[in-house]
Write a protein that binds this DNA or RNA. Structure first.
Lengths: 347, 347
DNA sequence: GCTACTGATGTAACCGGTTACAAGAACGGA
DNA sequence: TCCGTTCTTGTAACCGGTTACATCAGTAGC
């Protein structure tokens, strides 16, 4: 590895000048600058990131806090790949890399004593890497840790969970709006009894989707009794069970809005098991637009989220906070109703 | 942030001693060690990673090189989440973090001039972070860059692509074995004309699966004419097209082994479009065991890969190379045939 | 011609650890 | 008692950058 001193020596200047060429080119005379740049290129010099981070007290890395939820094993993030690619691409175009941090579960294996009761340990871990910022992906369990991160003063962007702090903000889909659109769609097809299977309690997007569902009903002049709201947990199984319960009512709904595609698929299976045809006897709408949505039979009408947009928006918000004291407003990504077959056609 | 000097001062020892307590505890007397550990804990001291990396010329990070394949846009890694979780968990239990590096595509956007023709730039990028090692996820495009990484002398583990170099090895599934098992399964059900839809040319797992297919046929005493091998590209569409071509033959096969679940689903759709029933008229086996495999109707019999095993094995191989000059043998992860409905039952 | 100011560059003190080497203490053996 | 080990700890030189401050040259103003 070539060091700045070698470049300096070859150019007949001091290391300070070499450093300036890379950090504040305007303060160096044109001739010197060109000479240094030339030599640096010839020698394939690139500044050592560890030294730079140490000296600047700031690294070119953004931490990614993400983990499985041990209370919900097997749960998959519906679009992790798009999210990561969007994030990585947006960050790297500004010179930042993404550092995946080991968190609660990993650490729990390693140090059985350390638990989330003491999230400070994790915050200090982020500190000692001199991270420029933090992206937090909601995994359900880490509410305390998230709060601690947000309080630490490090720029933080959370995904799908509201976060506030001196330099914290968040990105989420317009869950309420998407849910309302789904309900309006069902109402416009003539459905009057529209039920919903919600996500787990305490989950912010789930709550917003339920709120949107109620708003959609209100807008359509329909009433949504308590009995039309069933609590699920985003998993397919809960969609199946929930649908079965709904169908066993004396006055079953003719349409269901499921707060996740997985649950919608479960609902589809329950309807099939009950001998109902979809969409003729029952209309189903999901949420997320995961890959399987277009694959099931009938193909699922669903509310699509802007998957790569999450990454881009998170990166944008974070970069906005790095090197500025302003805290951007929370970002609400638009959702889009994707009409397929599970609700039938307009009539 | 508390520094080692502060801890040292409070303990009445020198920084060197504090450093030793954390790095080579055995060289410090028990009483001093306990005192230092105690104070360090009370002050919540943890060593600054930048300084440590600078001094040691080695950071506690492993680079992850992964990108989308711009020749195959929209391609999803079949099990990225499991892989990442396995990797992260295994690495973090040894104190390493995962650094997602920006690569070709990201850089191309940023510096349109820099392309893979000059992968050295990426290698130097890994150098200046003092990475402890590198995990390379095959994205198809980066063969040159992968070679450059492998030659650089940094410990490298590639996934699903053969890689050799002074400190390089790779992890892949037993693709040939899995494919052969699939074919044997079909043969045992009485099928005599078994076709295959392969992955793209130049893709190592695809080639191995084709090889396993041929071996399976040979073991069953069947012959596989050239006309029974159709080249696909892992995407669903190519499975659909490939199946249609096979069915248009004068003597169509009664069973197909598709080298990916996506293509198997395509084949299923083509069979349905042709008015054939699966499994009665046509048996289908896939590969990967992605989520949709169990969801399609009929549920797909497929060769499952050990998804979290990839991450664990990669981490294991990497950790084996870090701090040792031995290069582990390539890892072949076992595959498992998951029998569902798309081949019918034993008869 | 002298002063004040601006611009370019060098000097050296950091950043916060690690570690080779030196030094001193303790201890066993002759 | 003296010497050679072994164990423990301190001193100080790194690692490779960044940057406050000093210096010096050049230039404009009077």
């Amino acid at each position: 590895m070539v060091t700045a001193r070698e470049v300096a020596q070859l150019c007949g200047v001091s290391v300070a000048t070499v450093s300036r060429v890379f950090n504040r080119p305007a303060t160096v005379s044109a001739t010197t600058r060109e000479r240094v740049e030339r030599v640096a290129r010839d020698l394939d010099f690139s500044p050592n990131e560890s030294a730079r981070a140490l000296s600047r007290q700031q690294s070119a890395m953004v931490g990614l806090v993400w983990d499985t939820d041990h209370r919900r094993p097997g749960w998959r993030h519906p679009f992790l790949q798009d999210l990561l690619l969007g994030l990585k691409s947006a960050l790297s175009s500004h010179g930042y890399h993404l550092l995946m941090l080991a968190t609660s579960d990993d650490a729990r294996e390693r140090h059985p004593g350390v638990s989330l009761a003491d999230p400070i340990a994790y915050v200090s871990m982020t500190r000692r890497h001199h991270l420029a910022g933090l992206v937090l992906i909601d995994s359900g369990t880490d509410a305390d840790a998230f709060t601690a991160f947000a309080q630490s003063g490090l720029p933080c962007v959370a995904l799908d969970v509201a976060l506030s702090g001196p330099r914290a903000t968040y990105v989420t889909s317009d869950n309420a709006g998407g849910a309302a659109a789904a309900v309006r769609h069902l109402a416009s097809l003539g459905h009057r009894r529209i039920a919903t299977i919600t996500g787990p309690r305490g989950n912010a997007p789930a709550a917003a989707r339920t709120e949107g569902y109620l708003r959609g009903l209100a807008e359509a002049g329909l009433e949504g009794g308590e009995d039309l709201v069933i609590t699920g947990d985003f998993y397919r199984e809960s969609g199946f069970v929930g649908m079965r319960r709904l169908l066993s009512r004396r006055n079953p709904p003719t349409a269901v809005f499921a707060a996740s595609d997985e649950m919608a698929v479960g609902a589809l299976l329950a309807a099939r098991a009950a001998g109902l045809r979809v969409p003729e006897d029952l209309a189903v709408v999901g949420f997320d637009d995961i890959e399987v949505a277009s694959l099931v039979d009938p193909a699922l009408t669903t509310v699509a989220q802007d998957k790569p947009g999450f990454g881009t928006a998170a990166a944008g918000a974070l970069l906005g906070m790095i090197g500025s004291t302003e805290v951007p407003e929370p970002v609400l990504l638009p959702t889009k109703l994707v009409v397929r077959e599970s609700c039938g056609s307009w009539s």
